[in-house]
Design a binder for these strands. Structure first.
Length: 491
RNA sequence: CGGGGUAUAGCGUAGCUCGGUUCAUCGCGCCUGCUUUGGGAGCAGGAGGUCGCAGGUUCGAAUCCUGCUACCCCGACCA
């Protein structure tokens, strides 16, 4: 299976595509630009959802659900928002089909034209703020802290599985607050939630920061983001959080009476992560042998492969394995015992390695005789034989070690691919020869950012939070600058 | 959406330049049997195809022409 699989060095994007398909995460569908997320891929997404959902609830949010369709007129209410999304909206114009007059197939019934077209949501700010208008009357109704898990559609020209698809799954939080300070704090809190999730669950180190005006969300005052570095030296935004100011409140007339009995517009935030996280997960840790999944997100953490020749031997092995499986499961570990006799052990080793299962235990007649188990870890591919009595402790330790090792490896990769650059020539050279994050001075203007993007394809990924202030000269214009920002080519 | 490429069995492919009893090739996978089983087993036999779709040229099309669709690469756009 892995034999006809590209390596990262040969062709990184082919490697990614092969991995997604061959590890059974997702595939292209009959619908252009849309993917089918297969059971194994969806199981990982469900883990992501479960962990994030708990974090949202723990920070006071509730889930709700808003419609897939948004009246066209809603979009025009916030000028920069509509400008940002207009070019990639799917539009519903009719509500009925009929048999084709020539008897062949089915056609749109032109008599069933909608009075007002409906937009398939590319994001839900407009429908949500139109709804919040009715929910918010007083400061007592605030803060309003809501999240929804949903699909959205953005009609992309070029798509790639998980990284950019026309339809994708995500969560979008939409909150309303009485004060500017509280809304900013909310946006920052959710950024922290995302960063914590990325680092401690996905084992992906991130840099928190704000976006430059050019990269800001359409309709936001400030966009925060976490940015991470993939193994090919390109950046991937792994989550965003927006301080929307009163833009949507004003566009949708959402006012509340404050404690002083005065009408005021509410302050808003929105924040989201998508199935793109799957892409980040794959590209951060996986290697030329296939997927590598961090233990805390792996749908199966431990797979047990028996080695046997006869049914009697399998029975004997199972007598050892089944209690072990149960015991591991009682400690919250997900275990799969693959006792199929239709595949050989070697085949199973490769299969589970390719799918990134963190730990594999092998038990054969030899082990039964000696009271041992072979334990293999996916991240380093190391194997050792341990006493059966020690295996539970070992598994628990190893899961933690693998989780930590993946993070450490990703962090040291990022650190060794982050460059401080002070001249334009060096900037272009590093970008072409090494990739990675480039810390460089920027004069703060959109014109310079645009020029740099045109000439090098690199964009400002983030202006790091709590950035160290430092006098310098803009890499491009030579004008004075007070801090370095992070440039990179990005997904 | 612009430029380039690709489309042959579940997957990967040969054949296409020069149309025709080498025309549907080979490998993996699949099925059956026997031998195997601690890193993707071996041998033997077998099943599986509207050659992407729709037209056209021709006595004859996987092969030539036109249109369409999908995918890949490079641009523009983006989570």
């Amino acid at each position: 299976m892995a034999k006809d699989f590209s390596t990262r060095a040969e062709n990184y994007s082919q490697w990614y595509n092969d991995l997604v398909i061959k590890a059974d995460l997702a595939e292209n569908s009959a619908v252009r630009g849309c993917m089918v997320i297969k059971p194994y891929g969806y199981a990982i997404w469900e883990r992501i959802q479960a962990v994030l959902d708990k974090k949202f609830k723990d920070t006071g949010h509730s889930n709700a659900y808003f419609p897939l369709f948004i009246p066209k007129s809603f979009f025009s209410k916030e000028a920069s928002h509509v400008a940002g999304f207009a070019k990639e909206c799917a539009v519903v114009t009719h509500y009925r089909l009929k048999n084709s007059p020539d008897g062949k197939g089915i056609v749109v019934d032109e008599d069933a034209k909608l009075e007002e077209e409906l937009i398939v949501r590319p994001t839900s700010e407009t429908i949500i703020w139109d709804t919040y208008k009715n929910w918010i009357k007083s400061y007592r109704d605030l803060p309003l802290l809501i999240n929804q898990w949903a699909n959205v559609v953005r009609w992309e020209m070029r798509t790639r599985l998980f990284l950019r698809t026309a339809e994708f799954l995500w969560q979008e939080g939409h909150t309303a607050h009485a004060t500017r300070e509280e809304a900013v704090r909310e946006a920052e809190t959710m950024l922290d939630v995302y960063a914590d999730f990325a680092e401690n669950w996905m084992a992906i180190p991130v840099i928190k920061g704000t976006k430059s005006p050019a990269e800001r969300f359409a309709g936001a005052i400030e966009t925060y983001a976490i940015e991470s570095l993939m193994q090919d030296g390109k950046a991937l935004q792994t989550g965003t959080s927006h301080f929307l100011g009163q833009n949507f409140a004003k566009a949708f007339d959402v006012k509340f009476l404050n404690k002083e009995n005065q009408l005021d517009y509410v302050w808003a935030t929105s924040w989201g992560v998508s199935t793109r996280l799957m892409g980040a997960l794959i590209m951060s840790h996986s290697d030329d042998n296939g997927l590598v999944i961090p233990p805390k997100l792996a749908p199966i953490q431990v797979v047990i492969v028996p080695v046997f020749k006869t049914a009697d031997q399998l029975d004997q092995i199972s007598q050892t394995v089944l209690p072990l499986k149960k015991s591991l499961e009682s400690k919250g570990i997900t275990v799969k015992y693959d006792d199929r006799d239709t595949q050989k052990p070697g085949w199973k080793f490769s299969e589970y390695e390719f799918k990134g299962i963190p730990i594999r235990l092998t038990i054969g007649p030899r082990d039964i005789g000696q009271g041992t188990v072979e334990i293999a870890r996916r991240d380093t591919l190391e194997k050792e034989t341990v006493q059966l009595s020690d295996i539970e402790v070992k598994v628990l330790q190893l899961l933690d070690q693998i989780q930590q090792n993946l993070f450490d490896k990703a962090l040291s990769f990022r650190e060794s691919h982050t460059y401080r650059v002070d001249t334009w020539d060096e900037f272009k050279k590093v970008l072409d020869e090494k990739g990675g994050f480039i810390l460089a001075h920027w004069d703060g203007t959109a014109e310079t950012e645009e020029k740099i993007k045109e000439e090098t394809k690199a964009t400002i990924r983030v202006i790091p939070l709590n950035n160290q202030m430092e006098q310098g000269k803009c890499i491009y214009s030579g004008k004075p600058s007070t801090q370095r920002v992070i440039f990179a080519r990005a997904y």
